[in-house]
Amino acid sequence: MWGAVVIIGLGTYLTRLSFIGAFGERKMPAWMELPLRYVAPAVLGAIVLPAVLMPDGVVEFAPTVNPRFLAAVIAGAVAYKWRNVSLVIAVGMASLWVLDWLF
């Protein structure tokens, strides 16, 4: 696992260094620009949805079986309104605990 972390660290440094470290052409080619705009939403969607919809490996909407989905919907509404990380974590965790306790 340590080896993997070092490789990720190196790779990350190189992407950060890329254009700053380059000597000649410093402009990003147009073909790179467009897809890069959608990396953040696509990656984050791909992380969040499976984590809240199928925490045990099976898709489950019902809060009686998987309270995480409903808790995430509640937290998402809070995030949309306030964008405060601490608040979202607090509301999301509290929702999870309450739903766990209810069902």
């Binding site: 953040a40 939403p41 984050l44 969607g45 992380i47 969040v48 984590a51 809240v52 995480r68 808790a71 995430a72 937290a75 998402g76 995030a79 949309y80 964008r83 405060n84 990380v85 979202v88 974590i89 999301g92 965790m93 999870l96």
Partner: peptide, 15 residues
């Protein structure tokens, strides 16, 4: 569960 919650906060502004 706090991990997807953090990502949720990052997700909202980019969608």
């Amino acid at each position: 569960f706090a991990i997807p919650l953090v990502f949720l906060v990052l997700l909202i502004p980019v969608v």
